[in-house]
Design a protein around this nucleic acid. Structure first.
Lengths: 350, 350
DNA sequence: ATGAAAGCGCTAACAT
DNA sequence: ATGTTAGCGCTTTCAT
């Protein structure tokens, strides 16, 4: 493995000249530059990343921190990861995937103090997240995917839940729906301060109230069974419901199955809209799900771009951006049936 | 940020003593060890990972190389990634996620020559994969997830497709099925030498022939639409089919939908078994899918464990392991209907 | 425009 | 059992 010394010797210049030719940190005459480049090619030279990092105090490694519980990554989170990886790589940075359990602040502190990461993207942020403080203390540049409660001096990229819920409700209201039940994340997520659950709950309440109708929100476990159970509850609390607005990618499939079991047809009897959902998942259902499509890889990409700006010129302004999910109408939503309210299965057209 | 010098000074010992106290590479008296530890705690010392890597010629960073196309990661691949990340992290290693397009051998060469990675796990391996050669040339320890055609001197972890298919066919045959159609990955995947597609095709042919029945294999695009289309083809080639054995997690949902459209009930008229599928995905279907559950995170874990052995003691024996998928019977498979062959919808019990 | 040389913070001989 | 010191391969002042 050739070193910079070897290149310098072969090109008959000093090592610093080779270094400058490589980094462009100071002007080099055309002639020497060519000599150096030729020598590099000749020796098949590749700079040693660790040596460069040690000397320059920049590792060119970014961290992607996320809790890795047994459930693994959902389609949306997985898109964040791949978007981030692709962007970092294209910018000449490495991206290390670090599982950091929410509770393991010491581990995080150790990670941050190793001087291995130029900056980190923090995923699965809680409304009140102690990890943010640890990172700031270690003076590691941070960009969040998600938001803490107080975002005063933090860069973040997040889904615009308010707008997503508002647009979804508008879609259903436009179709004539009034009795809309919002199936949210689990009660535990709500209680634990999970941002998406909290924000969609509030946005839903606001939107429905704006239309003069009563919001009904039901939490559901993140599983098909959770969805089935939630739907039963929903029929208890709103027997005349005509639409379900889901904020729970796993539960929505159970909802679909249970609707069929209850003798309701989608979308004729009940419309279903699934929020923050990927097209791949939407297509798995029959009929295909009308979704608010999550911005997916864009979130990861923008987070890395913002982080790179922080890493490179230290005094950058904050980057705070909300990306909306976009409505994609597929087969699971349609106009409300005029007279059918409270009386499914009965067939007596007006 | 305290350095080893600072610790040495405070503990009144030499830097090497601090270093040895840290790594345990040579014995240290109890007394000095305690002095050193105390000084470290006092200064909140954390070793600089880059400096350590440069001096020791071991970065303690592993690479996970995978092509990152627009489709992103499926549930199974995502489980590989999280399993690998968790294991590396627990072993005190970092895991960098490197998108390497199958064609970009130069990029791979550059990555491998940077001396940043102690070893790599290569995912999405093709039967004839030039990336393996590049990595060996760069003398980077490699473990594959998947297999090349010639595995003579390579370590790998892969799913045992032969056994998975055999077990799945046995399950269906036990239930009385004989007309079983195998819906595979796409024709392009087959033509491109995608291992799982090739191996399941062959294993299916062998298993069916073993039972004295004719194998019918149909490729399908990786989407619900692909599954629907494949099922139509299937009914053309085997109108009396009673079971579908899918090797295509996306297509299987289209198959389910299309079966309903054809007026067939699952599992009463047609049984469906989905191979290499995660429980989470299985639960999304109604009825829940009988699957050959993929070993998921275990694959990633074992790959990293094997890689670590290669990285640490250089002369390790190869690790070649095949993990079977395990049958989990859910609602989509059941006994064949005695008389219904070729005559769905007719209701005249024996 | 180029060179010389002092580190970056650690490991691992080589001493004793 | 501990200390001394020469690197690891680069970046970056400070000279010229």
């Amino acid at each position: 493995m050739a070193t910079m010394q070897d290149v310098a010797r072969l090109a008959r210049v000093s090592v610093s000249t080779v270094s400058y030719a490589l980094t462009g940190a100071r002007p080099i005459s055309q002639a020497t530059r060519e000599k150096v480049l030729a020598a590099m090619a000749e020796l098949d030279y590749q700079p040693n990343a660790l040596a460069r990092g040690l000397a320059s105090r920049r590792s060119r490694i970014l961290g992607l921190l996320l809790p890795l519980d047994e459930r693994g990554l959902g389609a949306t989170e997985s898109a964040f990861v791949t978007g981030a990886a692709a962007t970092a790589s294209a910018a000449g940075y490495h991206l290390v995937l670090s599982p950091v359990d929410a509770g393991d602040l010491d581990g995080l502190r150790r990670l941050a103090s190793q001087r291995m990461l130029d900056g980190v993207v923090l995923m699965e942020v809680q409304v009140d997240d102690p990890r943010v403080g640890v990172l700031r203390e270690a003076r590691v540049p941070v960009v969040l995917i998600g938001r803490t409660g107080d975002t005063a001096d933090l860069s973040y990229v997040d889904i615009d839940f308010d707008r997503t819920v508002r647009d979804a409700v508008a879609h259903l209201v436009d179709l004539g729906h009034r009795r809309i039940v919002h199936v949210n994340h689990s009660a535990a997520a709500l209680a634990g301060g999970y941002g998406p659950a909290l924000r969609s709950r509030d946005a839903f309440a606001a939107a429905m109230t704006g239309y003069g109708v009563t919001p009904v929100m039901i939490p559901a476990e993140e599983s098909a069974a959770g969805g089935r159970h939630a739907l039963t509850t929903a029929f208890g609390r709103a027997p005349d419901l005509t639409a379900v607005l889901a904020m729970n990618e796993s539960a929505v499939f159970g909802i679909l199955g249970e609707l069929t079991a209850h003798g309701r047809t989608v979308p004729d009897d009940v419309s279903v809209v699934s929020m923050v959902t990927s097209p791949q998942v939407a297509e798995l259902a029959t009929p295909a799900l009308t979704t608010m499509t999550s911005p997916g890889t864009a979130v990861g990409r923008i987070a890395i771009e913002a982080l790179l700006r922080h890493v490179r010129d230290d005094g950058t302004a904050l980057h705070q951006e909300l990306l909306p999910c976009t409505l994609e109408v597929r087969g699971s939503s349609g106009p409300v049936r005029r007279q059918a309210v409270g009386a499914p299965r009965t067939e007596h057209p007006s």
